[in-house]
Nucleic acid binder design. Structure first.
Lengths: 349, 349
DNA sequence: CTGAAAGCGCTTACAG
DNA sequence: CTGAAAGCGCTTACAG
């Protein structure tokens, strides 16, 4: 009956399959529990002969130390949590990978989850990770109130926010220069002769979206251009809304001659809409994306370094863990304007 | 001295910061440990009054159940591991997210790590996850020998391989129809009049790369076209190698008139090289990618559904966990040819 | 309805 | 060099 032999039964009295424990190894090797522990952990003070006997028992039984028990005793789990918006978003892939690499270099595993931009889900996830006693937490906030983390932070969970600041608590945060980047991008369009410039961005409650809008306004104001309401559209980044917003700005008697887009998802949709237009419309997008250089025209972007955000945040996290208290800090990484053609088009007409 | 008050000290005798335990809650509420456990887990059999007292103690102390201890007793960790190649690769983002969603719907957390296409690192990661006693493992293999997982599987760790088959062990595997997809893609080029067709793919030791090459050969053979060695180039997918390989196929007296690319990373580089050419070269790529439709010409691809791969694998994993033994199966998901222009170009000349 | 005892699989602190 | 005892923070099985 292969059904019962291939995979261990999972009856309640038969936890973890029926894995051998150190006790089993000790019995088989004819030594004490502590001696097995010494061998498993490479601690000194075991004669070569004893070590060999223990090792043989380990191999014969297929023993693997239960780190979950180890953790309970040691206090640190050697794992950190990452709460992000969506693992499938190309912006978060490199960020997540960078966090993972830093964790790995510190011997820690990474548990991550997507909040799907839902504050309640962010909260549940973050607290579930705390219940698992992760040593630290890297959070890309969906919500704007993180007081729920205060007891956890007080209890010793290292915490760093990234991409967006924490709400209503004092904590480490690593951001891109969203304001400055957007201002530079819009100023670039102004320098190429545009005055009627549209801004299409994400929901205004999202910090990055608000900051980029602020950058847009600042650049316009610096140039003495009064901004019209219909030039600004903020909302969800689903293609339908972005498409409609773009088309509205491009219609009517005084259409915009250039568009500044608030993030990669918006940019992609706007590129699609512009490709359908007969007249040329200039475009600068926040966030770089693959193949931006291969489109015709190439898409000029304000690039942020997602991997650097992740790396910086994770390093900050382990500094908290290694060094005890570190005063909360706000770190801002610079953005970079990449000219590729779409942002250098002159105003139509 | 805020240094010591803000964040808990981490002295050895002071584990997990200095978090309150059920014992602390019990003492404060003046009840037994088990009663606290009942309240925390919403078990019946507690008078409203007792429950209130316990709840007050929980709130006052900021107690949060230590799931790590709970897990030790219960046997299941409610977490699964995902070993993939690179979290930053756009192909794995949606796959990982899909696995996460299924895990979430089963109340499990996802621990993931990147193997960086290194078999030894894959092994370390997978075994580290087993040591943490994940309930199950979804693995995108980097290596070709997974016998190291046999004791773990025997001990009850549910395991599903995805994207590539397991090596030398009998296990569940979820794949795309790499052979059929590549054959269809190449047949598509042949149907549009091409005979000299190049294949540029990933390292031949990678199963998907080998299968796609096999599909290429099959299509050519079906059409009675003898394949020349210089039409095939397999190796690492770094831009430099792919670029050189493409240029070589396009040079000489009898250049290829069409190229079939073995994955998204190869495709992106080949698109770049072709954009620099004066003559038109047809292209069909394995893997869809964002903006493929916006390039000129649009890039014809053999699309696979990364999210479906992840979802199917994860569902299979939980079926193992819920239902006890399930006979290992090989599930193959279909691919889809998406015509966008580049694959419908006629041969140059 | 409530709780004391035992135990999950390890590590720690200590004694031989 | 080696090991028995206690304990990490919970849940289980049982008794009142």
């Amino acid at each position: 009956m292969p059904e019962t032999t291939r995979r261990a039964e999972r009856s309640p009295g038969n936890r973890y399959g029926n894995r051998p424990t150190m006790k089993d190894v000790a019995a088989r090797a004819g030594v004490g529990l502590k001696t097995v522990s010494r061998v498993v952990n490479g601690e000194p003070g075991v004669t070569p002969d004893t070590e060999r006997r223990v090792q043989e028992a380990i191999d014969a039984l297929g023993f693997r130390r239960n780190d979950s028990a180890r953790v309970l005793r040691k206090g640190r789990t050697a794992s950190i949590g990452l709460v992000l918006e969506d693992l499938a978003d190309p912006f978060y892939g490199p960020l997540s990978r960078a966090v993972e690499e830093v964790a790995r270099s510190h011997g820690a595993l990474l548990i991550n989850g997507s909040s799907a931009e839902d504050p309640e889900r962010e909260r549940e996830l973050a607290l579930a990770l705390c219940a698992r006693r992760v040593d630290g937490l890297v959070v890309i906030p969906a919500g704007s109130d993180h007081r729920y983390l205060e007891p956890e932070i007080r209890a010793g969970v290292a915490t760093v926010f990234v991409d967006r600041p924490a709400g209503r608590i004092d904590a480490d945060v690593v951001l891109s220069d969203n304001f400055g980047g957007a201002r530079d991008g819009v100023a670039h369009l102004i320098a190429h002769g545009h005055r009627r410039i549209g801004f299409i961005g994400d929901m205004p409650r999202i910090h990055t979206a608000a900051e980029r809008l602020r950058g847009y306004r600042a650049a316009m104001e610096d140039a003495g251009i009064p901004v019209e309401d219909r030039w600004m559209s903020l909302g969800v980044t689903v293609p339908e809304r972005v498409r409609r917003a773009t088309q509205e700005m491009l219609s009517g008697p005084d259409p915009v001659t250039a568009v500044f887009t608030g993030n990669n998802r918006v940019t992609v949709t706007v590129v699609r809409v512009l490709a359908e237009q007969s007249r040329q419309v200039a475009l600068v997008g926040f966030d770089d994306f693959e193949l931006a250089d291969l489109l015709r025209p190439g898409v000029t972007v304000v690039a942020q370094d997602a991997a650097a955000l992740g790396r910086t945040a994770a390093e900050r996290l382990f500094r908290q863990l290694d060094g005890g208290f570190v005063a909360p800090e706000r770190i801002e990484l610079p953005t970079r304007l990449v000219e590729r053609g779409s942002g250098e088009l002159p105003p139509a007409r």
